[in-house]
Write a protein that binds this DNA or RNA. Structure first.
Lengths: 343, 343
DNA sequence: TTGTAGGCGTTATCAA
DNA sequence: TTGATAACGCCTACAA
């Protein structure tokens, strides 16, 4: 390994001079500095991150922890975050939490507080208070943290407004019996506070029903065991066969992945979209554009989400922590109308 | 921050003893060790990775650099690698190279050689020799590195055998005019050595044609500008309108993403799959199971790929470098027959 | 404008 | 079985 001392020796200066020169400190003359840069390049010198970090407490790395790397929405989000982090001059690293609490904790302990100057984190299992102690004061921005008593800055997707728009769209194109797929009716009662993404999207749906003076009951909600394409596909038949859902002509799936799985399940049963039934999703994943039929959806603007999240985080990093109360921003979204709701 | 000294003081022992105890060194009595672990836990002590790494040269982190985080195949691969790395007791981090050479180089210089004990890397733009110097002797395993003169251990997808199986399947179900989408006919001549994934898949296709005594020409190959769903979708119409491809009844797309985009493009033109035209892809991404119609494909076994790649890498890490010549393994695959080739 | 020196938290080598 | 001590490579006051 070639160290700073090697560069210093080769350039005939001291280690300190090399350090200053490479970091662009103005006190070193340009001629000396450029000679040193040349020597460093010739020797393939690379500053040792561990040493620098040990000494300065900075690594220039920002971490992004997402749920599952192999699901479309989280991975598109991770990609957008990575691009924005790089654009802001930091090195992005991505990790998957797999939704297990142990993984979340391990990542926080080992990686965040060690390798990263800050972290963008989407907490699934770890509570806000625990996060605070795990973060050891390191800057952190949360995604879709809906806890009533936030500890960190956060950015949320527009769950309520988006869901309201989705269901509103179904109503507008003339659907008479609309079902929201992905959460049970009972949840409306239990989680009226809507401290989860599911709850928030449910709430937004309810708003749309209320606004159109549509009375809702269990027949307007259909739960599935997991938000996966598999579960959604299998569930479609169950819904079609249930008396309660007879005559459904419009479905809002709480995510695009669920929508695509559900659409596939409908195809398995010979139900045509949009002819027999209109379908809309939520997220705006890439596949929604290429599916047959293409899927209408509420598209979260991931560039906007990333800009907001990374912006908040870098503010914290560069100003030594949060200034004032935790902020909560919301990402832009738009309604994308495609074939699946074309009547 | 709570350091080792704090733990040592609180436990009434020296720093060295703490270090040994926490790392399970047998020379510390179990009673002392467990007392120290208790104290460390009480104080929420976390070993400082930078310091540990500076001193020992190990971080316990393995990096995975993939092309694009938001494309299905790379992201599924990243997820599988992450799981395998974690299973082997290391911390996985993932980075996207975006296919730009600068990004690849930056990641190698800043992250690999610094934060990671080793790296799994899929080189797009950087040549083997350059990699060697960038890696600074750090363990590395490459994916789909087909250079004739390998420098690193690598794992490849079964491009040739897979493509041969795919085209063979189309022939078997009775297709008479088969087109390979994703590379031009001319490439067959230019790249007979097949030092790229594209070339290898082309070569495999050719084998299948030869084996069935089918003469091939430009009418059996159709190039698209990029391996994206977008480009594939737009290209479908162009192919259907070209004289040369009149009467096509079977298509092998060089990746699933291309296949799904192409299928969408066929739908745009009113061509039905599989009735008018059978279609098969390559990779085995999750969406291929849920598309309408579902997509037949050559599925790369990502668990097998990960086990092989991570296995090779950890061998290098734990035995201080490669032993002997670079190895080249190949991942298992299987043919998955679905609706798109059901006749 | 450049050099000297001390220390960041850990691990490894000794010595006790 | 444990403890003192010297690195690891870099950064930064401070001295020259």
């Amino acid at each position: 390994m070639v160290t700073m001392s090697d560069v210093a020796r080769a350039a005939g200066v001291s280690r300190a001079t090399v350090s200053y020169a490479l970091r662009g400190d103005p006190r070193i003359t340009e001629s000396t500095a450029s000679r040193i840069r040349q020597v460093a390049a010739d020797l393939h010198y690379n500053a040792n991150l561990s040493a620098r970090s040990l000494r300065s407490g900075r690594t220039g790395v920002i971490g992004v922890a997402i749920f599952e790397l192999d699901r479309p929405y989280p991975s598109e989000m991770g990609a957008a975050m990575s691009r924005e982090i790089a654009r802001r001059g930091y090195q992005p690293i991505v990790q998957q939490t797999s939704g297990s609490k142990d993984d979340e904790v391990a990542i926080l302990r080992k990686v965040t507080s060690q390798l990263c100057d800050g972290m963008i984190f989407s907490p699934a299992k770890v509570a806000d208070e625990e996060l605070r102690s795990l973060s050891h004061g390191k800057p952190m921005v949360l995604l879709d943290d809906l806890s009533p008593d936030p500890v960190f800055d956060s950015v949320a997707t527009a769950c309520e407004a988006g869901a309201q728009t989705a269901v509103g769209h179904l109503i507008e194109i003339g659907c008479r019996h609309i079902v929201v797929v992905g959460a049970p009716y009972e949840m409306l009662v239990e989680d009226r506070l809507a401290s989860s993404v599911r709850g928030r999207r449910l709430l937004g749906s309810l708003r749309a029903f209320e606004q159109a003076d549509i009375e809702v009951g269990p027949q307007n909600f259909f739960d599935i065991p997991l938000w996966t394409a598999d579960a959604a596909r299998a569930s479609a038949r169950r819904m079609l066969e249930a008396d309660r859902y007879r005559g459904v002509d419009g479905v809002f799936c709480l995510t695009d992945t669920v929508a695509l799985g559900f659409m596939r399940g409908l195809a398995d049963c010979g139900v045509r979209v949009p002819d027999d039934l209109a379908l809309i999703g939520f997220d705006g994943i890439a596949e929604s554009e290429y599916s047959i039929p293409s899927l209408s959806t509420i598209r979260t603007n991931l560039d906007d989400l990333s800009r907001k999240a990374v912006g908040l985080l870098i503010d914290q990093i560069e100003h030594d922590g949060m200034t004032g109360d935790p902020q909560r921003l919301t990402a832009d979204f738009d309604l994308v109308v495609r074939e699946s709701t074309q009547r």
